[in-house]
Design a protein around this nucleic acid. Structure first.
Lengths: 152, 152
DNA sequence: TTACCTGCAAACAGTTTGCAGGCCG
DNA sequence: CGGCCTGCAAACTGTTTGCAGGTAA
């Protein structure tokens, strides 16, 4: 059972200590912006945000800190097909999968515990120790099935 | 019901015609290499493969053709966290999900019929008529768990 | 004090694009 | 024959890295 992290700074401090690393002002500032409920950031967005608080901060520091948070398991890195990479806080176990309408793009967060279990099983069966997963279900939603639509 | 494409060249020809584009030798050569059952390619891998058949072919052409196939819905583009982007044929129902090692990037094609069924069920439960899905399971593979690696 | 960390700018990798000539239809 | 396509190399984008000076512990 993975315990949800609910105090990012504390969790990061522990991680840094374990690694012989330091909690700097920049890192403190970045995580303060980063860890907001439901947030998701591109590196650039976060950089702009942090920069507003302290213009002297460097872009590389933001990148380095995001990678740090990822390695510390405090953030999740997601890459999308449209060339966008986002990082999102990993706090408070709000895992879900995505159900997406191919017609109108409507997206629902869904979860099926049985699937979650089978996923773990499936990974283990192949010798993998599962860490996480992403699942996107595509379909046509009820509204769009009824609605008129143009064609190519 | 989406009809599986079982003759890539034919399907591409149709797409190209519709768009006022042309079926060149290079494109023919590339799709010949690309469309192999179970295949998945990085742009570089495919470039190397095609190059062996015709050394005069340019890398940009491979990139352009992959994007073309993606737009024509004949290929699927997948991006993984380890910075790898692969393209895979979308032909005739060789559906599978992906099991990815976060350590070494090794990727396995996997399938669990029970999960497939639950996915359909889950989508329907929310009023969606399912068309397709993508599932990525991340974990650490056996080799990497045993292998030497620097540790915290 | 001594690593570690930072900002800067240069380096990098993967992908896209501009151009002059080539080829499909 | 006209316009799309190609190979080449340069451009681009997002990210990482080397370095000299700053800073947490």
């Amino acid at each position: 059972m993975s315990k949800p992290v609910d105090n990012p700074e504390e969790a990061l401090t522990a991680y840094l200590a374990k690694k012989g690393m330091k909690l700097t002002n920049q890192r403190r500032m970045i995580i303060q912006e980063f860890f907001q409920p439901e947030a998701h950031w591109t590196a650039e967005e976060l950089y702009q945000k942090v920069r507003r608080a302290d213009p002297s901060i460097g872009q590389a520091t933001v990148y380095r800190t995001l990678n740090l948070l990822r390695d510390a398991k405090l953030a999740r890195e997601l890459r999308f097909s449209n060339d966008v990479t986002i990082f999102e806080p990993r706090t408070g176990g709000s895992h879900h999968d995505h159900l997406i309408c191919e017609e109108c793009g409507k997206t629902l967060a869904v979860l099926d515990e049985r699937i979650e279990i089978l996923q773990t099983e499936l990974a283990r069966k192949h010798g993998f120790e599962p860490t996480s997963h992403r699942m996107y279900l595509y379909g046509i939603c009820e509204d769009c099935r009824n609605a008129p639509k143009e064609h190519d």
